[in-house]
């Protein structure tokens, strides 16, 4: 018998600190599968955010840098500009990327910085215990929206791929999910495309990954997957929002306001 599935080599063989059912682990794995398949671990530098994945530097076997909250794109810019032959990625959550780091996110995209951003959208602040994120869906109960997010009080969520797809510097803006095996396969393909863009010097690529947070959603892991499918995907439609190698806005599913 031959091994048909095992841990990618660039994912260090230690247990993670993530909660049971947290999909960070899936995204880590497919990212590492791409790094392994492209054979680029030795030439890759990753930048971690502040949030649940703050300690992801312990899991990725490439060189890693831990950035301040929201500043990973700026740190990655400093790395990439001085090491243009290296592969540079950031791994950021929704609070990090779309709240405190919004300026860094928008400008790294509009500069067409030749890096990859993996954006984990789980509609909540996980590490601090479940507060409202910029992506928290209207009506969603969190610690700081105890009666559900009321847009009159707390405003509306940010749709990151839609926003960044308007910028000329963006080469790829794609939203994927990790709720099922077919979607995970899509997600991996998107990450591969993002790294291929970097290899070809096409500019900024972002892959937004709809993810779960069973603990702070107060749901069992399988129920959390169901919420992702029933509530998140309708609000955050999956698809390619921009792809300079193909058409733009082509295969985005219908929005839901």
């Amino acid at each position: 018998m031959a091994v048909v599935f095992e841990r990618p080599k660039s994912l260090i063989d230690i247990p993670t600190h993530y909660c049971p059912g947290c999909t960070h682990g899936i995204v880590h794995r497919i990212l590492c599968e791409v790094i392994d398949e492209m054979g680029i671990e030795g030439d890759t530098i990753g930048v971690c955010p502040v949030g649940c994945s703050v300690m992801a530097y312990d899991y990725f076997n490439c060189d890693m840098i831990e950035a301040a909250h929201g500043r990973a794109p700026a740190v990655a810019t400093g790395v990439k500009r001085t090491n243009p032959d290296k592969y540079v990625f950031t791994y950021q959550g929704d609070g990090d990327l779309a709240a405190i780091g919004t300026a860094e996110t928008v400008h790294v995209a509009t500069r067409g910085e030749n890096i990859v951003v993996i954006f984990i959208n789980n509609t909540i602040y996980g590490m601090t215990g479940g507060q409202m994120a910029p992506t928290t869906i209207p009506g969603q109960v969190t610690q700081t929206t105890p009666f559900g997010r009321d847009p009159q009080l707390a405003g509306f969520p940010v749709r990151v791929c839609e926003m960044l797809s308007t910028l000329t510097g963006t080469a790829l803006a794609q939203r994927v999910a990790v709720d099922s095996v077919p979607h995970i396969r899509e997600a991996k393909k998107a990450i591969r495309k993002a790294f291929e863009n970097q290899k070809a010097g096409r500019g900024f690529s972002i892959v937004e990954v709809l993810s779960t947070c069973p603990t702070n959603w107060g749901l069992a892991p399988l129920d959390a997957i169901k919420r992702l499918q029933d509530e998140m995907i309708p609000y955050y439609p999956l698809g390619v929002y921009k792809d300079v190698t193909e058409g733009v806005f082509e295969n985005v599913q219908g929005g839901n306001e």
Binding site: I45, V47, I65, A67, A68, R71, P73, A74, V75, A76, T77, G78, V79, K80, R81, T82, N83, A103, E104, V106, H107
Partner: peptide, 20 residues
């Protein structure tokens, strides 16, 4: 040479470059 979007971004770009 890179003109950053803010002082905050600039110092973090320095952090990134210095890290390498």
């Amino acid at each position: 040479f890179l003109q950053a979007e803010s002082e905050i971004a600039a110092i973090n770009m320095v952090l990134g470059a210095a890290s390498t």
